[in-house]
Nucleic acid binder design. Structure first.
Lengths: 230, 230
DNA sequence: AATTGTTTAAAACGCGCGTTTTAATCGCAG
DNA sequence: CTGCGATTAAAACGCGCGTTTTAAACAATT
């Protein structure tokens, strides 16, 4: 049947594209992995580029059906929701090669977007972003401005993405013993959650005041070395 | 003179490698940009790979001499030091194509390290990491464990790196008006700093207690949807 | 002047890749 | 049976790239 080999190609292409990127991936390798003839791939997709785009779409479809809007039981505290959100996100990020290829493929699109990225944002990133904003809304003073909410959401996401982006560098900075003891998704997720909750529940008015904060020192506009490179 | 064309090649190679990555860069293009003959590049570097490695080393040397260990005046508050550190870091990250090629090249090495990465960590990332840890040490209770200190440092760095890694996605999520009003290095740096300071000065014992925190709710071990992908 | 290291111009080699083609087979609907 | 879409095998085209080569100039040193 038609769909059979088509999806076989797509499922083979996913992990390969995810691991090696678009340029470093050869159509021949995908066909070899898929046990499919070279001409057959051309029959279904024509270009390598179309195959790639379809692969990204497939990844996004996979993830969306795997991740229904999380429906917490009524009464779940926002802090608990945040913990769940962060843990899920960081779980997806962790793991070197074992991470699901969909996530790795999406990370590539984040870092250097192609044609496929806009759709990815619309169908996947933005909904996730909105969920996070919804959780934060419950935790934040009503007076919190929208830009501040957005930046806080990015603070959450940024901390989580870091453990994928800089996974190899972390492995070079932190010795194996400490990594194995403290760098699983659970502990890292709890760390990010605790940090955010501590910051949000701070007695200071740093969230709503337009500038300046905390213990009453800080001079924010002094010039310093300013190395804007050569 | 010998050095002249050699450095001309290196200076031409830097931006090109930074923008397009190793594979997508052609030796011919570098030579064209450098106004240098193809054979001349072979004369000095032999392989494309050696040229790349030398380029990364050059970037690292540039950055190191541009960024002397920041010596704050005695009496500078740790909060102020943190603000300066974060602002410098985030300034390097911001900007799409205008960012210095050294930073962009290093980001590529972070995301998918090559041979050149280990040296980069030793000579550049680790020193920076140590500086940040030194600043945090002044802000943290003495009882804070080392793993916690490390994770806090990564929380700082992660939030900053995000604005480079996900720059394009942020541009798709946040409309132009808000971006232009709130997404400069200064404001984002202050946000990250304020968030960290608020979290660190939280009255809760989340930093030192082994698990659980804040307002006395949280159940951290419940199972949820758990989508570990297909 | 002769030597040696540097640079250029131009061409070619060799290979791998994306893409196309051809010819042949299989299954199935009309 | 006939045709048609799907699939395969194998080969080839065409191109771009990394690399090498050749031959000739140029510069500085000896």
């Amino acid at each position: 049947m038609a769909e059979d080999t088509r999806t076989r190609i797509l499922n083979a292409a996913g992990p390969v594209f995810a691991e090696k990127g678009y340029q470093n991936t050869t159509v021949r390798e995908i066909c070899r992995v898929a046990n499919v003839n070279l001409a057959s791939m051309n029959y279904h997709f024509g270009h390598k580029e179309r195959l790639y785009i379809e692969t990204v779409k497939q990844a996004q479809r996979n993830k969306i059906e795997q991740v229904p809007q999380p429906q917490w039981q009524t009464g779940t505290s926002p802090a608990e929701k945040l913990r769940g959100f962060v843990r899920t996100l960081i779980t997806r990020m962790m793991g070197t090669g074992e991470a699901p290829w969909q996530t790795r493929l999406m990370m590539r699109e984040i870092m250097q977007p192609t044609q496929a990225c806009q759709e990815l944002v619309q169908n996947y990133f933005r909904p996730q972003f909105e969920i996070l904003l919804g959780i934060l809304e419950e935790l934040l003073p009503a007076a919190t401005t929208q830009p501040k909410r957005h930046q806080l959401a990015f603070s959450v996401v940024g901390q989580c993405l870091y453990y994928r982006v800089a996974h190899e560098v972390v492995a070079l900075l932190i010795d194996k013993e400490e990594r194995e003891a403290h760098y699983d998704a659970q502990q890292l997720g709890d760390h990010v959650t605790d940090l955010m909750l501590a910051a949000l529940s701070s007695p200071d008015s740093w969230l709503t005041s337009s500038r300046h904060s905390s213990s009453g020192l800080e001079s924010s506009t002094e010039r310093r070395i300013e190395n804007t490179s050569s």
